[in-house]
Design a binder for these strands. Structure first.
Lengths: 241, 241
DNA sequence: CCTCAATGGTCTAAGACTAGCCCAATCGGT
DNA sequence: ACCGATTGGGCTAGTCTTAGACCATTGAGG
């Protein structure tokens, strides 16, 4: 709260780990967020290394680690590549408890608060801006996609819907921050069983968010997102107790 | 907007530069945000290097660069250290135009949008939570401090006020994100002349933000922060044209 | 079948970064 | 006047990371 807290905030570690570790985290993020869906492959090593700003050697170490861990299937030759084999695990309360234990109770509440703040902020900004027809179409399409999703695609399309809100603001910083916030709670969300009741509620909440944004009502958007994320957090806590 | 945009978002560079460059940025952030006020010194090299997770050699290179650039005065011996000599430059429209040209028009609007989203999110979260007496006291004290600030301390205390909102949510992630957002527009804000009229308006807006938070009204908090930041952005644009 | 383009696999030399150690300067206290 | 604690200054050996070149494998298309 006081000045020394701010020192801790700003003078925090410059790097979260070595290049290898950070690369593994980033690739894992792409996989778990479904940015590269199961069956698709990562970009070629040379291109990917350039995008990530690291050497091919380091990238290959990270890919090797993920391959060993079962997230990727690497194939040589033309039309080869690093194919995503990861499928979201079956929801399990045990996994959830373990995941929470790993990240710590404080970090969990931090991550949930963070996600609430940035997603509300994004929705509010988007609701305040003049939307083009194309933007409206994208938002509606994402909504339909998640509503009509098969169970195995549901998490991925839900993520896509949420991230689209931030992306549509046109702010790269906001988009990356929302992606980061989402990936921090991704493993936990995956551990929640997908009951039809919950999916129905979620569909209603998603619809409310889109309606608020499309009608240009930032306060309503804020409330809709808050309600949706609080409901999700409540589900999490319910499965923890 | 489509899938490939999300690839760009997630598979962005893992590192913004080498350890030296990132360290310079971080120290500059601490200095410009006023986390270490002019006249104070940075923590001892050994301690600071440990906090930043880098070697002393790299830290010393960064300190050397900032010393050469006139931000720090390094003194040896007991009670020595790296003393902050930086004082915010006199506001100047020329500086502003130059700063904007350096960061690019797109990046500027990105940074402003980003800041709006995260600060609104933080204020809304804080307004939604049960505040202790101590938290209320901190918020009110910060408000009084910025209102009663001498001109040379104004920017720093204004920053302190804004960051306190995020810090009081208890979310470290949110606090660091708000600090990051603020530092992205810091140089621009510094270039805006501080006219008494603007300071008066700012004081009213700050008061409205605090009132909304203390009365537990997230929508009002959102609106108050939006109004304040939009007014600041409007001032920026006015001095640009 | 052969060829070729795309892609992963491997090696090497150079540079970046680190950990740990010791030196040098400064200042308060005895 | 000295001592000791604190702090910046500097060196070295070793590890991490990179850039770039070259090799190996695969599969489509002629």
């Amino acid at each position: 709260m006081d000045e020394s807290a701010r020192l801790m905030t700003v003078l925090r570690p410059v790097r979260a780990g070595n290049a290898f570790e950070e690369t593994v985290e980033r690739l894992l993020q792409a996989i778990k967020l479904g940015v590269v869906p199961p069956g698709d492959k990562l970009p070629p090593e040379r291109e990917l290394a350039a995008r990530l700003g690291i050497s091919r050697v380091t990238l290959r170490e990270a890919i090797r680690a993920l391959s060993d861990a079962g997230y990727l299937d690497v194939r040589r030759g033309r039309y080869g590549g690093a194919f995503v084999t990861y499928a979201p695990p079956q929801p399990d309360a045990g996994d959830l408890r373990q995941a929470v234990a790993e990240m710590g109770s404080d970090d969990l509440s931090d991550a949930l608060t963070f996600r609430l703040a940035v997603e509300c902020g994004a929705a509010q900004v988007l609701a305040s801006s003049e939307l083009t027809e194309e933007q409206r179409a994208v938002l509606l399409r994402r909504l339909e996609e998640v509503n009509g999703a098969a169970i195995e695609d549901y998490r991925r399309l839900d993520t896509a819907f949420h991230l689209s809100i931030a992306e549509l603001t046109g702010s790269t910083l906001l988009a990356t921050t929302c992606a980061d916030a989402r990936s921090r709670v991704g493993d936990l969300l995956n551990a929640i069983p997908m009951l039809q009741v919950n999916l129905d509620h979620t569909a209603v909440q998603h619809r409310a968010i889109v309606d608020a944004i499309l009608s240009g009502d930032p306060d309503a958007a804020r409330r809709a997102v808050t309600e949706h994320l609080e409901a999700t957090a409540a589900l999490l806590r319910a499965f923890l107790s």
